[in-house]
Computed example of a mutant assay.
Amino acid sequence: MTECYQPELRFSSFSRRKITADFTGGDLTSNAGLLLLRECDQHLGLSRSVAEVVNDPRRPACVEHSTEQLVRQRLLAIAAGYEDLNDHDQLRFDTALQVGSQRLSPLASTATLCRFEQQQDRSVAIGLHKVLFDQFVARHKKPPKRLVLDFDATDIPVYGEQEQRIIGKAEYTRGGPNPRFITTNLEGDGEELYRKLYCARGDMENRIKDQQMDLFASRTSCHRWWPNQWRLLLSALAWVLYEYLREQLQDTKLGKASVATLRNRLIKVGAVVIKNTRRFRFLLPTLLPDREIFCKLATRLVPT
């Protein structure tokens, strides 16, 4: 990584003491919680499954970064809050992301990740949907009694001169603004069905918010259709990691936390990194607010 001179930053004084800062702290990370998501990924075999269905026409003899490493790098970066490919110009040197991606040296560059993204097509999108379906099935010890499939539209803006697919939806009613009605073949009182059954789908809406607001499902700024689908599905795959993490937290105060809360409290953790030929050592904050939960997660996720 290119190093350049960084001036000392000066802040207003406090108690007759000068306050300064600079960028000479050495090997630190603000993403130490990726160690937890790395364990989730290994438990689920998620990146491995994705790597088996994506397009990667590179010559194996000339490859420096494996397909699975590229998938892990992109997936964990999104989970950590970095949606832009340009972020990887610096992120590729982050030790926590390197460890999460199972690599001992700098990760793939922005250009490499961009070329990889452009190779994905319709067949890959279909394959990734199957990966998501298999993950869902694997999370159930026995088949659920009932599955509710809720198909709903969601708005994702496009940018620039990219391809577009336009779907129109129109509703007309004489019931005034914001009518509440359902059409169903289920027996029972309509209002009760609406309040007790249909409104339960509100939690599903929260999952959509997780992906659009916190996992960047709406970041579809590529000029081509299928790479945008790849980005959208990466968001869904990152959500699978967080859902597995949330399963391990059911007996804690974070058992129903949103993705944003989980990221802020457990993933965006600062650490000093010490590494040698034998191990990586992450020195976490002594006063980490959720230290007990972090330790509990590590114990549960790491195989004995």
Results as ranks from 00 to 15, higher is better:
136 F>I: 07
136 F>C: 03
136 F>M: 08
137 V>Q: 09
138 A>H: 04
139 R>D: 10
140 H>Q: 09
142 K>E: 15
144 P>W: 10
145 K>F: 12
145 K>Q: 14
146 R>D: 01
146 R>E: 09
147 L>V: 14
148 V>K: 08
148 V>Y: 02
148 V>T: 02
149 L>R: 09
149 L>P: 04
149 L>I: 11
150 D>L: 05
151 F>V: 13
151 F>I: 14
152 D>Y: 06
152 D>W: 02
152 D>L: 07
154 T>L: 11
154 T>W: 10
154 T>D: 11
154 T>K: 11
155 D>M: 11
155 D>H: 14
157 P>T: 03
157 P>R: 07
158 V>A: 14
159 Y>V: 10
160 G>P: 07
160 G>I: 05
161 E>M: 14
161 E>K: 13
161 E>N: 15
162 Q>R: 15
163 E>V: 07
166 I>Q: 13
167 I>K: 11
168 G>W: 15
170 A>Q: 11
170 A>T: 10
171 E>N: 12
171 E>G: 12
172 Y>Q: 15
173 T>N: 06
173 T>K: 07
173 T>W: 04
174 R>I: 13
177 P>R: 06
178 N>Q: 12
178 N>F: 11
180 R>H: 14
180 R>T: 12
180 R>P: 02
183 T>A: 14
183 T>H: 08
183 T>R: 10
185 N>I: 04
185 N>R: 05
186 L>A: 06
187 E>W: 15
188 G>P: 03
188 G>D: 04
188 G>T: 06
189 D>Y: 13
190 G>N: 13
192 E>P: 00
192 E>M: 11
193 L>M: 11
193 L>H: 01
194 Y>G: 01
194 Y>P: 01
195 R>M: 15
195 R>H: 14
197 L>R: 08
197 L>W: 10
197 L>A: 14
198 Y>R: 12
198 Y>M: 14
199 C>K: 11
200 A>T: 03
201 R>K: 04
202 G>I: 09
203 D>M: 14
203 D>F: 10
204 M>N: 08
205 E>Q: 00
206 N>Q: 00
206 N>I: 06
206 N>K: 03
207 R>Y: 02
207 R>D: 03
208 I>P: 01
209 K>F: 00
209 K>W: 05
211 Q>H: 07
211 Q>C: 08
211 Q>G: 05
213 M>P: 04
213 M>H: 12
214 D>Y: 08
214 D>Q: 12
215 L>T: 06
215 L>K: 00
215 L>C: 04
216 F>I: 02
216 F>W: 00
217 A>G: 07
217 A>I: 00
218 S>N: 13
218 S>I: 05
218 S>F: 04
219 R>W: 15
219 R>H: 13
220 T>C: 13
220 T>S: 15
221 S>Q: 15
221 S>Y: 10
222 C>K: 10
223 H>S: 12
223 H>D: 07
224 R>S: 02
224 R>Q: 06
224 R>I: 05
225 W>D: 00
225 W>Q: 02
225 W>T: 04
226 W>R: 09
226 W>D: 09
228 N>F: 06
228 N>S: 01
230 W>V: 00
230 W>A: 00
230 W>S: 03
232 L>T: 05
233 L>T: 05
233 L>F: 09
234 L>G: 02
236 A>R: 03
237 L>M: 00
237 L>E: 06
237 L>P: 00
237 L>T: 00
239 W>L: 15
240 V>E: 03
241 L>H: 04
242 Y>K: 03
243 E>T: 03
244 Y>C: 00
245 L>V: 03
245 L>H: 01
245 L>G: 05
